[in-house]
C-alpha cells in the first residue's frame, strides 16, 4: 500500500495535470522569457548606439561643415559614421535637401568662452532619435578634447570593452527569473491547495486518513516544489539548447529547490495563520517582496547568488546555497509548530 503522505502528493500532482493549469504556468514563463528578450531586442535596436551602428551605421550619412581633419569631424568618422564635409553651411543644406545626407553638424564656434555646435536633424522622430543616439559618443569625446585644451584631465577615457547589455540581461534577469518564477508559483499553489481544503471543509475528512496535519501540509509542499524543480530542469535544458552557457548547474538546481521550499513554506505559514485564500495570497505576496528586499539589503540576495553561480564566479559555491537551506530548515521547523492551527 502506498504511504498516505505520497498519496496526497500524488493526488495534488494528478489534479494539476488534470486541470491543465500547469500548462498556463509554463505558457506564462515562456511568454515572459520571450517577451522580455523581445523587449530587449527592440530596445537595443532603438536605444543602444552600438547595436544601431552595427545594423545601420553605414546608412547614417552626416554632413559636416568645415575641415575634415578638425577634431569633431575626425571623431565622427572614427565612430564609423559616414561623414561628408562641406565648406559652408549653405552647401551642406542643399545636400540635406537633396537627400545626400541625413543630418548636419555645423562647425564649432566660440561663444563667450564656450564652444557652440549646431546640429540640424530631420523632422522625423525615428531618424532623428537614432542619429542623436549614435552621435552622443563622439560629442562626449569632443567634450573631453575641449576639456583637455582647458587643462582638465579626465581619467579612464580609453576604456572600451564589449557591449554588455545582452550578457547582463541573460545572467542577471533571464536565468534568475526562469529559475525563481516556478518557486513563486509553488508558493501560490501551496496556499491554494491548503486553503481549498479548509474553505471547502474537506480537511477533516483528509485527516481521518493515517496522516498528521504536518504530514498533510508537508505533502502539499513536496508536490509544489516537485513541480517547480521539474520546470527549472526543463528551462536549464532549453537554455543550453539555445547556446547559453550555464556553470554550476547542480548548485543552481539545488538553490532553485531551496528557494521553492522557502516560498512554499512561508506560503503555508501564512495559510496556517489566516486560513482563507484571499488574505493568505495577499500576505504571501507582501512577504515575498519583503524577503527579496531584506536579502538584498543584507547582501545575500538569492538572485545575485544565482547569477554568480551561473557565470561561474570564483567566490561563489555550494556554501552560499547552504545559507538559504538553513533559512528553509528554520521556516519548516516553524511550520511544524504552527500547522495545528489549521485544525481549529
Amino acid at each position: 500500500m502506498i504511504h498516505p503522505f505520497f498519496a496526497v502528493v500524488k493526488k495534488e500532482l494528478g489534479s494539476v495535470m488534470k486541470d491543465r493549469t500547469i500548462i498556463i504556468s509554463i505558457l506564462i514563463q515562456l511568454f515572459i522569457a520571450s517577451f522580455s528578450s523581445g523587449l530587449l531586442l527592440g530596445m537595443l535596436s532603438l536605444y543602444d548606439a552600438d547595436t544601431i551602428m552595427r545594423f545601420s551605421g553605414a546608412g547614417i550619412r552626416i554632413g559636416v561643415v568645415g575641415d575634415a581633419s578638425a577634431p569633431l569631424a575626425s571623431l565622427l568618422t572614427e565612430r564609423g559614421l559616414n561623414t561628408q564635409t562641406f565648406p559652408t553651411l549653405t552647401e551642406a543644406q542643399s545636400a540635406f535637401y537633396n537627400g545626400d545626407v541625413l543630418a548636419l553638424v555645423d562647425a564649432p564656434q566660440d561663444a563667450n568662452g564656450l564652444i557652440e555646435v549646431k546640429l540640424y536633424l530631420p523632422d522625423s522622430d525615428t531618424v532623428s532619435s537614432l542619429i542623436r543616439m549614435v552621435i552622443q559618443e563622439p560629442l562626449k569625446q569632443y567634450e573631453n578634447v575641449l576639456r583637455a585644451e582647458r587643462g582638465i584631465e579626465v581619467r579612464y577615457t580609453d576604456l572600451n570593452g564589449k557591449p554588455a547589455t545582452s550578457f547582463e540581461f541573460v545572467y542577471s534577469v533571464l536565468i534568475p527569473m526562469l529559475m525563481f518564477f516556478p518557486a513563486f508559483v509553488a508558493g501560490s499553489m501551496s496556499i491554494d491547495m491548503i486553503t481549498e481544503e479548509v474553505e471547502s471543509k474537506t480537511l477533516q475528512t483528509l485527516l481521518s486518513a493515517p496522516l498528521t496535519i504536518s504530514g498533510m501540509v508537508g505533502a502539499k509542499i513536496v508536490a509544489a516544489v516537485f513541480l517547480a524543480i521539474l520546470q527549472c530542469s526543463a528551462w536549464l535544458l532549453l537554455m543550453q539548447m539555445n547556446g547559453i552557457e550555464i556553470q554550476n548547474q547542480g548548485w543552481i538546481l539545488a538553490l532553485a529547490l531551496v528557494i521553492a521550499g522557502i516560498t512554499s513554506t512561508s506560503a503555508a505559514l501564512s495559510a496556517a495563520f489566516l486560513q482563507d485564500r484571499e488574505r493568505s495570497q495577499f500576505i504571501y505576496s507582501l512577504l515575498l517582496l519583503a524577503g527579496v528586499g531584506l536579502s538584498t539589503g543584507l547582501n545575500i540576495s538569492p538572485i545575485t547568488t544565482l547569477s554568480r553561480l551561473a557565470v561561474g564566479d570564483a567566490y561563489t559555491n555550494g556554501w552560499n546555497v547552504m545559507i538559504f537551506a538553513a533559512v528553509f530548515a528554520g521556516l519548516y521547523f516553524l511550520l511544524l509548530k504552527v500547522s495545528r492551527r489549521l485544525m481549529i
Partner: peptide
C-alpha cells in the same frame, strides 16, 4: 564618476565647455 569629479573641482565653463544646439529641419 569622472563627470561628478570634474564638475565639482572646476568652474562650470571649463568642466562643461561644449553646448550643442539641436535644430530640426523639414526635409
Amino acid at each position: 564618476e569622472e563627470l561628478v569629479r570634474v564638475g565639482n573641482s572646476f568652474a562650470e565653463g571649463d568642466a562643461f565647455p561644449l553646448r550643442v544646439g539641436v535644430n530640426y529641419l523639414n526635409a
